[in-house]
Simulated scan of single mutants.
Amino acid sequence: MSTTFGSPRPDAAAYMMRAAASAAGRSYKQELIQLLDVQLGQTALDVGCGPGTDLPTLAERVGVSGTVIGVDRDPVMLAEARRRTSELPAVQIREADVHALPVEPGTVDRAKIDRVLMHVNDPAAVLEQLHLATRPGARIGLAEPDWDTLVVDAEDLDTSRAFTRYTASEVVRHATIGRSLARYAQQAGFTIETVRATTPVFLDFQDADHTLGLGRNMQQAVQDGYIAEVRGRRWFTSLFEKPFFASFTLVTVICSR
């Protein structure tokens, strides 16, 4: 197929930084940090910290007497996180798989996992690790999308629905983790305090194509024989010929140890 079928797959670090800088990204992240209620002198853990977009904010909250630990397994992400926090002595960057957190048991006061559980092998095991790492009274913030709720407006509603089904069944490992967050957290031993759902809205086609992978995921759906090429191209072309709308549900869970 032509490589012009939507925007190319972006660099992972650049993708995460752009998503975090978007209006939708800033909104839910600010709410997540606010609900996390990080205090001076605490130890805060960012599980799957990626390029470190949230580490400076956490460092500001814990102050010079606190500690921020960012954990990720991707060397490219970690290099960017180290660059971003090189002048922040409170921040420690640790390379590890989130299924085996490099943190002493019972030492973490605040922790967050943001759009990470949808990608891991075993979300329940990661939350069990987090329960082990946190101390009694700790507060934990979790945020994950539910890709089964993805909607893309198009006159060809059947193809839009087929695209969402493909995304949820083939593209994302745990596509419905958002709706299951509270259940997973409770099963790991946490007490649920707050559950919120927000709906990021995309009115700009280019922004949506980059963030939601409209073109590249449709191309993969066509290559996999899930959607016919003519049908997929007609649907994709129609998206930028008319006013655009797409959205999905993102779930935030605040819980305590």
Score class of each variant (00 low, 15 high):
residue 89 P to M: 06
residue 161 R to G: 14
residue 28 Y to F: 12
residue 122 D to K: 06
residue 228 A to L: 14
residue 165 R to N: 14
residue 59 A to W: 01
residue 189 G to N: 08
residue 88 L to H: 09
residue 256 S to I: 01
residue 113 I to T: 12
residue 204 D to T: 06
residue 72 D to W: 11
residue 257 R to Y: 00
residue 15 Y to E: 06
residue 31 E to D: 12
residue 181 L to S: 03
residue 67 T to D: 11
residue 74 D to M: 10
residue 54 D to N: 12
residue 144 E to V: 00
residue 44 A to T: 01
residue 151 V to D: 01
residue 52 G to V: 04
residue 176 T to A: 15
residue 193 E to R: 10
residue 148 D to M: 03
residue 190 F to Q: 03
residue 232 G to R: 05
residue 66 G to W: 05
residue 84 R to Y: 07
residue 103 V to P: 06
residue 74 D to S: 15
residue 206 Q to F: 02
residue 209 D to L: 09
residue 196 R to H: 10
residue 2 S to Y: 06
residue 115 R to P: 02
residue 193 E to I: 00
residue 58 L to Y: 02
residue 158 D to G: 03
residue 17 M to L: 15
residue 126 V to H: 01
residue 153 D to I: 06
residue 39 Q to H: 14
residue 165 R to K: 14
residue 164 T to E: 14
residue 120 V to R: 03
residue 107 T to L: 02
residue 128 E to D: 13
residue 250 L to K: 13
residue 1 M to P: 09
residue 238 S to C: 05
residue 91 V to E: 02
residue 80 E to G: 03
residue 154 A to M: 01
residue 202 F to L: 04
residue 205 F to W: 13
residue 179 R to V: 14
residue 115 R to E: 07
residue 199 T to G: 08
residue 162 A to L: 14
residue 198 T to Y: 05
residue 55 L to I: 02
residue 36 L to A: 05
residue 13 A to W: 02
residue 208 A to I: 09
residue 222 V to K: 06
residue 200 P to W: 05
residue 163 F to G: 08
residue 180 S to D: 15
residue 217 N to L: 11
residue 165 R to S: 15
residue 38 V to P: 02
residue 89 P to L: 03
residue 78 L to V: 13
residue 242 K to W: 11
residue 110 R to S: 03
residue 45 L to M: 07
residue 189 G to L: 07
residue 192 I to D: 08
residue 40 L to G: 08
residue 119 H to D: 13
residue 113 I to A: 13
residue 104 E to Y: 04
residue 213 G to C: 08
residue 169 S to Y: 01
residue 239 L to Q: 06
residue 219 Q to N: 14
residue 166 Y to I: 13
residue 96 A to V: 10
residue 130 L to F: 00
residue 52 G to Q: 03
residue 234 R to L: 11
residue 171 V to E: 15
residue 181 L to M: 05
residue 102 P to Y: 06
residue 109 D to T: 03
residue 179 R to P: 04
residue 5 F to C: 05
residue 16 M to P: 00
residue 198 T to S: 13
residue 130 L to I: 00
residue 205 F to L: 05
residue 49 C to L: 04
residue 46 D to Q: 01
residue 194 T to S: 05
residue 191 T to I: 12
residue 227 I to R: 10
residue 224 D to T: 04
residue 74 D to K: 09
residue 75 P to Y: 11
residue 164 T to L: 09
residue 198 T to C: 10
residue 95 E to Y: 06
residue 61 R to F: 00
residue 14 A to H: 12
residue 108 V to F: 00
residue 100 A to P: 00
residue 235 W to P: 08
residue 187 Q to D: 14
residue 199 T to Y: 11
residue 16 M to E: 15
residue 63 G to F: 06
residue 106 G to H: 05
residue 15 Y to V: 03
residue 184 Y to N: 04
residue 155 E to V: 08
residue 228 A to W: 04
residue 111 A to R: 04
residue 8 P to H: 11
residue 153 D to R: 13
residue 60 E to T: 14
residue 231 R to D: 13
residue 65 S to Y: 11
residue 178 G to A: 07
residue 121 N to K: 12
residue 168 A to K: 08
residue 102 P to C: 06
residue 84 R to V: 13
residue 19 A to T: 13
residue 189 G to Q: 10
residue 247 S to L: 04
residue 239 L to K: 02
residue 50 G to T: 07
residue 129 Q to E: 15
residue 100 A to D: 13
